[in-house]
Simulated scan of single mutants.
Amino acid sequence: MIDQLGTLGWLFLVVSFGAIVPIVPTGAAVSGAAALTFHEHPLMIVFVVAAGAAGAYLGDLVMYAMCRAGGEQLARRLRWLRDEERLSAVKERLNRSQVPVLLMSRLIPGGRVPVLLAAAFLGMSWRTFVIANLPACALWSTVYAGIGVAGGSIFPEPWEGVVAAVILILVVNQAVNWWNKRREAVEEPSGTPESA
């Protein structure tokens, strides 16, 4: 039991850190922990989901506070702000529907940081962010734990399920990034003004 609590503590720390430093594969950490837990203690998956969601929530709060306090200068210095047009589009969507945009931003690879920046720059209230981000983090952790459980149930050895879950997350993330870059490349020529 103490081993499982230690694992959950590490998962919480890794996900919290990864929510602040977006290069850490937090989804893969939750999926791997769920795949491992599925083989050893299936009922502990609920705690894996809770630890992942709590870590994501704490990390998001810290990141949102940094965005609110540091503003665009901090975002540019840390290279979080890369695409002004994308940020403008996210701001428009946030103005229309805050909660659904926060929910979806957690599930789309690379979608969370622009939404947090847009929310901070728009001055979304802390109360709204704190309430809306709870279900977003819970849904995110549940989805990634589900991927881990699927990997863990397919393979007989725990390590095989962990490897399969991590590879699946990385493949999905790369596919979404490739799709976004391809879409932007197609849109870019049509957005440039024609020369006379």
Score class of each variant (00 low, 15 high):
Ile2Thr: 10
Asp3Cys: 14
Asp3His: 11
Thr7Lys: 05
Gly9Pro: 07
Gly9Val: 08
Leu11Thr: 01
Leu11Lys: 04
Ser16Arg: 10
Phe17Lys: 08
Ala19Thr: 14
Ala19Phe: 13
Ala19His: 14
Pro22Tyr: 05
Pro22Val: 14
Ala28Pro: 07
Gly32Gln: 09
Ala33Lys: 12
Ala35Tyr: 01
Ala35Thr: 02
Thr37Ile: 01
Thr37Trp: 04
Ile45Pro: 02
Val46Met: 04
Val46Tyr: 06
Val48Trp: 07
Gly52Met: 14
Gly52Thr: 12
Ala54Pro: 01
Gly55Glu: 05
Ala56Ile: 00
Ala56Tyr: 00
Tyr57Trp: 12
Tyr57Asn: 11
Leu61Ser: 01
Tyr64Phe: 11
Met66Ala: 12
Met66Ile: 14
Gly71Val: 15
Glu72Ser: 06
Leu74Asn: 02
Leu74Arg: 11
Ala75Ile: 15
Arg76Gly: 08
Arg76Ser: 09
Leu78Lys: 12
Glu84Lys: 14
Ser88Pro: 08
Lys91Val: 03
Leu94Ser: 02
Leu94Lys: 06
Ser97Trp: 04
Gln98Asn: 12
Gln98Val: 11
Val101Asp: 04
Val101Ile: 11
Val101Pro: 00
Leu102His: 03
Leu103Gly: 05
Leu103Arg: 07
Ser105Asn: 13
Ile108Asp: 00
Gly110Thr: 02
Gly110Val: 01
Val113Asp: 02
Pro114Leu: 15
Ala119Phe: 00
Leu122Ala: 04
Met124Glu: 12
Ser125Pro: 06
Trp126Arg: 05
Thr128Ile: 15
Phe129Ala: 06
Val130Ile: 10
Ala132Glu: 05
Asn133Ile: 04
Leu134Ser: 01
Leu134Ile: 15
Leu134Glu: 04
Ala136Gly: 04
Gly146Asp: 03
Ile147Trp: 10
Gly148Leu: 09
Val149Arg: 03
Pro156Ser: 12
Glu157His: 13
Pro158Trp: 00
Trp159Phe: 09
Ile169Met: 09
Val172Ile: 15
Ala175Lys: 07
Asn177Trp: 05
Arg182Val: 14
Arg182Gly: 01
Arg182Gln: 10
Glu184Pro: 10
Glu188Trp: 15
Ser190Asp: 04
Glu194Arg: 03
Ser195Leu: 15
